[in-house]
Computed example of a mutant assay.
Amino acid sequence: MTNLPALSAPDLAALLASRLCHDIISPVGAIQSGLELLDDMPDDPESMALVRSSTKSAVAKLQFARIAYGASGSSTAQIDMGDARTVAEGWMAFEKANLQWSGERAYVPKNIAKLVLNLLVVANASVPRGREVEVSIERLEPTARFTLRARGKPLRVPAKFRELLAGETTPESIDAHGIQPYYALLLAREAGLSVRLEQGEEEVVFHVVPADESEEALRSVEIEAPR
């Protein structure tokens, strides 16, 4: 399993809250700007369009965050992967890449659904605008196995994610920008899964497999492409 630096529960909660605020401040700020413009120019179509678009973006981000970062009920709660797909599609409608999603729909332990969504954030950040991210749910029972592929050029997997995979970080180096990839790998560890990264010239693949499924998985994470 990935050797992650230890964070206290209060620090983890505070950094995730900071990340959430960072994600929604832009659309909420745009709503405020649009409303101020409407104060000066009532019924202005461009201002109204800005408010409508920004409101939809804020709602999509909050619905996504509710599952990706939130408690989603009790510690034993399960999440419908169909609901995870729905919030993923809503969130990606306002992001850089286009989303393709395939695989079965079933209720799964919440950390499985949360892991898929958090790796989706990392995959989306790896490709330029207008490219594609594909989520393939290969198996959910008895243990989950799935793959995310990000296609485009140039590919830039977030540096903090790579550092965390390689065990090159300390608690002091985790900030509001690095907490999301940290949380993704923490979810994988809690779910008994292993994440491996494979990168080519125009495609990066995030493999998620049971940690005890093979010798390769037991060796934690393998990075197959040079940095």
Rank of each mutant, 00 (worst) to 15 (best):
residue 174 I to V: 09
residue 184 A to T: 04
residue 226 P to Y: 10
residue 28 V to M: 05
residue 59 V to S: 07
residue 188 A to P: 03
residue 9 A to N: 09
residue 52 R to A: 10
residue 192 G to K: 05
residue 145 R to A: 15
residue 68 A to V: 04
residue 55 T to A: 14
residue 180 Q to E: 13
residue 136 S to Y: 01
residue 115 L to H: 08
residue 111 N to Q: 09
residue 172 E to S: 13
residue 115 L to I: 04
residue 9 A to Y: 01
residue 66 R to K: 13
residue 110 K to L: 08
residue 62 L to E: 02
residue 145 R to I: 09
residue 6 A to N: 03
residue 87 V to L: 02
residue 207 H to D: 11
residue 199 Q to E: 09
residue 134 E to M: 11
residue 70 G to L: 09
residue 5 P to K: 02
residue 43 D to Q: 14
residue 8 S to G: 05
residue 82 G to P: 11
residue 145 R to V: 11
residue 139 R to C: 07
residue 190 E to S: 13
residue 104 E to F: 03
residue 12 L to G: 00
residue 186 L to M: 09
residue 106 A to K: 12
residue 48 M to W: 04
residue 104 E to Y: 02
residue 102 S to F: 06
residue 83 D to Q: 14
residue 24 I to Q: 08
residue 19 R to T: 09
residue 16 L to W: 01
residue 195 V to W: 05
residue 189 R to C: 07
residue 89 E to V: 07
residue 222 E to P: 02
residue 89 E to D: 06
residue 42 P to D: 11
residue 76 T to V: 01
residue 221 V to L: 08
residue 192 G to F: 11
residue 206 F to H: 05
residue 212 D to W: 11
residue 156 R to D: 14
residue 189 R to N: 08
residue 17 A to I: 00
residue 25 I to W: 07
residue 22 H to G: 08
residue 209 V to C: 10
residue 153 K to Y: 10
residue 15 L to H: 03
residue 14 A to Q: 03
residue 98 N to G: 11
residue 151 R to W: 00
residue 155 L to F: 08
residue 175 D to T: 05
residue 142 P to H: 08
residue 102 S to D: 06
residue 90 G to V: 00
residue 152 G to S: 13
residue 178 G to E: 04
residue 202 E to H: 15
residue 170 T to R: 11
residue 43 D to L: 14
residue 114 K to H: 01
residue 182 Y to L: 03
residue 8 S to I: 03
residue 209 V to D: 14
residue 116 V to G: 00
residue 18 S to C: 05
residue 77 A to Q: 06
residue 96 K to G: 04
residue 94 F to N: 06
residue 37 L to Q: 13
residue 118 N to T: 12
residue 36 E to A: 15
residue 217 A to I: 10
residue 89 E to M: 12
residue 164 L to K: 08
residue 29 G to Y: 04
residue 71 A to V: 10
residue 213 E to D: 15
residue 84 A to W: 03
residue 140 L to R: 05
residue 195 V to T: 06
residue 148 L to H: 13
residue 101 W to K: 06
residue 101 W to Y: 09
residue 128 P to R: 14
residue 170 T to N: 03
